[in-house]
């Protein structure tokens, strides 16, 4: 890699982080407005990240090192690789889904390595909500059957000829959208980070480590929104995708602001229902098309 490419990568990372944090801040503001609260300014997420980044840490005596320290680093590694593989290289969708699955490992690992009962409970709930991944694979298969390729650049160029996929695969788009909703903070499916278990898997990761996880979360939000826009709307340019990102954040925050946190079993049952619908859609496409 030469210096120009390195400069571009750094810029891309900073861009993803800043846009992701601003969108998450906007998300919080809109949710507050829906609930008739004034709400924090939209740079609140960024301020939180900075605040946590400059705070003292100490490893709990119950923690299992080095897994405990590796988990926040892994969070950034996972989403940076997703950013590079998706936005820069426009590589295979399946690899990015695999990386998304590693996000689950971060949740499990944080829960397992800290030794805190709250963290462990968050991890257990994360295992429960593994049902959220099944529609994802069905979505990938459906996209493959329609476009005959899983490389993102191929999918985007397919849509430039045939029109956006959201019109052809509305059920898959809906399933992916539910995934976006469940990834956003305060979502009805956010049983892993529910406030009834303090902060779920994040409980024992405080200070600097929490700052790192926040950075990873911001990049994750950006990447997932970009994926949705690229796969289902066919816009892969990161500047042109920006208005759509704001629009999707609006819709997500309206949903999240109006719905309560579901009980774990309800959340899982709802996700399994969606999975069954998407699988039926896939089966229908395999047999009849």
């Amino acid at each position: 890699m030469d210096f120009n490419e390195f400069f571009y990568l750094i810029n891309l990372t900073v861009y993803a982080f800043l846009i992701g944090s601003l969108l998450l801040g906007l998300h919080r503001k809109i949710m507050a407005k829906i609930q008739l609260r004034p709400g924090p300014p939209i740079i609140q997420y960024l301020l939180h990240t900075l605040k946590f980044y400059f705070k003292e840490i100490t490893f709990p005596i119950t923690a299992g090192n080095p897994l405990y320290i590796f988990m926040p680093i892994l969070q950034i590694i996972v989403w940076l690789s997703a950013l590079i593989l998706a936005v820069k290289l426009e590589s295979s969708l399946l690899i990015i889904i695999g990386l998304y699955v590693l996000q689950k490992i971060v949740e499990h690992g944080c829960g397992l390595s800290s030794g805190s009962p709250y963290g462990k409970l968050g991890g257990v709930r994360s295992v429960f909500s593994a049902a959220a991944e099944i529609p994802l694979f069905a979505v990938v298969s459906t996209v493959y059957i329609v476009t005959n390729s899983l490389i993102i650049s191929d999918i985007v160029s397919y849509q430039q000829i045939h029109g956006p996929l959201i019109l052809k695969l509305p059920i898959s788009a809906f399933a992916f959208f539910i995934l976006l909703v469940s990834k956003a903070p305060n979502s009805p499916f956010g049983i892993v980070k529910g406030k009834d278990i303090v902060s779920g898997y994040l409980t024992e990761h405080f200070g600097l480590l929490a700052g790192l996880i926040y950075i990873g979360d911001a990049i994750a939000y950006f990447v997932l929104l970009w994926l949705f826009i690229a796969i289902f709307l066919g816009i892969s340019n990161i500047f042109l995708a920006l208005p759509f990102m704001i629009l999707i954040t609006f819709i997500i925050s309206i949903i999240n602001g109006l719905t309560p946190l579901l009980a774990p079993h309800h959340s899982v049952m709802l996700q399994i229902t969606i999975a069954i619908v998407v699988l039926l859609d896939l089966l229908h496409r395999v047999i009849f098309l």
């Binding site: 399946l94 695999g98 397992l112 257990v124 694979f137």
Partner: peptide, 29 residues
């Protein structure tokens, strides 16, 4: 199984199963 005390090892259960699912999807496609 996740609740067993004292174990980063349980992480391997989930990691293996999640990776294998992705790989199976690739094979089936």
């Amino acid at each position: 199984m996740f609740r067993a005390p004292g174990s980063p090892y349980i992480l391997m259960i989930h990691l293996s199963s999640l990776l294998l699912i992705v790989r199976t999807v690739e094979i089936l496609l």
